[in-house]
Amino acid sequence: MRYICTCCGYIYDPKIGDTMNIIVPGVAFAELPEGWVCPLCYASPDNFDPLD
């Protein structure tokens, strides 16, 4: 499932991963490492809403 940052609109898509945080494709949102923040606005995961 994709998640959207409520602060800036960035969408974390597990199919794509997150190159800015060196997250390879295939990592579910819940499986992101501790300390992961939004690559665009640095918001913590509790600021994300499920999208799908």
């Binding site: 997150d18 190159t19 800015m20 945080n21 060196i22 490492p33 501790e34 300390g35 992961w36 923040v37 939004c38 690559p39 665009l40 640095y42 913590s44």
Partner: peptide, 12 residues
């Protein structure tokens, strides 16, 4: 203190 610190996203 947490065991991990917040990531610093950006161009690597």
């Amino acid at each position: 203190p947490a065991t991990v610190t917040a990531s610093r996203p950006g161009p690597q």
